[in-house]
């Protein structure tokens, strides 16, 4: 049974990590990154053609994690597959030992490196969750019986700092009704806002794992503020980063991430750390916070 599911159901505070599959066939670096997370996280998200850039698939990389005794959260986007392919990939995933699936919309192809690709979105994320739940119940989404059924632990995403927030909350509720059993969020930099979000969704009774993106520099913060939806790094953090000498930035990054984790910890069921290349900092962050996975 999924360790992530067990941990969340037991009410334990969980830590999840993330790896991005490479553009190519050599998985050494990516598997080393995963290895580095082994002792510190319950499960590792494997992104699905993140930023709509062609890479090796999340299915293959998730399977390679399982071979190494690591638990993946298989990310599956609606961008590139129609309902046949999505359901088939889900069945394939189960046959490879994958239990946790994060159902997401996916960045539009225009943002990636194949901007002329046909955007599929045959299903949206709510419909994908419903389709996956239906597979769990032994049927495909057209109502036909499966010879044998999977038992996925299904997750979804939400953006707590979205403006306006209400459409996100409406969609979150639909995702829960469609079968989402846990949520991972967009990066949190404003714990107070996150607390407000959590109090609004208190009645939903679903575990929320707060997203933590390791901040590498003030420039990165400014870039995200200008370009990334649902991320807003406050001026005070940007200033703190600016006042940090270059050689101390890694230390500062650890301190910042640990501080945010401590601030959000009382309101949520875990944190999802997205290292974006600084994977070696994750153990330090975890030990600084003192969270035991």
């Amino acid at each position: 049974m999924s360790k992530l599911k067990q941990a969340l159901e037991s009410g334990r505070f969980v830590v999840t990590g993330e790896i991005g599959p490479p553009k190519g066939v050599d998985l050494d670096k990516c598997l080393q990154d995963a290895q580095m997370l082994r002792e510190h996280v319950t499960a590792i998200n494997v992104t699905d053609l993140q930023s709509a850039v062609l890479r090796i698939g999340s299915l293959a990389v998730s399977a390679r994690l399982i071979e190494r005794g690591l638990e993946p959260v298989y990310q599956l986007t609606c961008r590139d597959r129609n309902r046949l392919a999505l359901q088939s990939d889900l069945l394939s995933a189960w046959s490879l030992g994958i239990e946790n699936v994060l159902c997401i919309t996916g960045d539009h192809p225009i943002l990636g490196d194949h901007s002329e690709a046909k955007p599929v979105y045959d299903l949206d994320s709510v419909q994908l969750l419903k389709a996956a739940s239906t597979l769990n119940q032994g049927h495909d989404m057209a109502g036909h019986e499966l010879e044998s059924a999977p038992s996925f632990f299904l997750g979804a995403v939400v953006t707590p700092a979205a403006e306006p927030l209400e459409p996100q909350i409406i969609k979150m509720k639909k995702k829960i009704e469609a079968g989402a059993k846990f949520f991972q969020t967009q990066a949190i930099y404003e714990p107070e806002k996150f607390e407000q979000f959590m109090s609004r969704i208190q009645g939903y009774k679903v575990p929320v794992i707060a997203g933590i993106v390791i901040l590498k520099s003030a420039a990165m913060a400014k870039f995200m503020n200008a370009n990334v939806a649902g991320i807003s790094v406050p001026e005070s953090i940007i200033r703190e980063m600016e006042e940090t000498a270059k050689e101390d930035r890694r230390k500062k990054a650890v301190e910042l991430a640990a501080r945010i984790i401590r601030q959000v910890e009382p309101f949520c069921q875990g944190v999802h750390i997205m290292p974006l290349g600084w994977d070696e900092l994750v153990p330090e962050i975890i030990s600084e916070v003192g969270v035991i996975p």
Partner: peptide, 20 residues
């Protein structure tokens, strides 16, 4: 909607504008 989504917005909108 650039993605033709039927059940609400994706997470890509910023200040009411589309990610594309």
């Amino acid at each position: 909607c650039a993605k033709g989504l039927l059940n609400g917005p994706c997470g890509g909108a910023k200040d009411g504008k589309c990610e594309v």
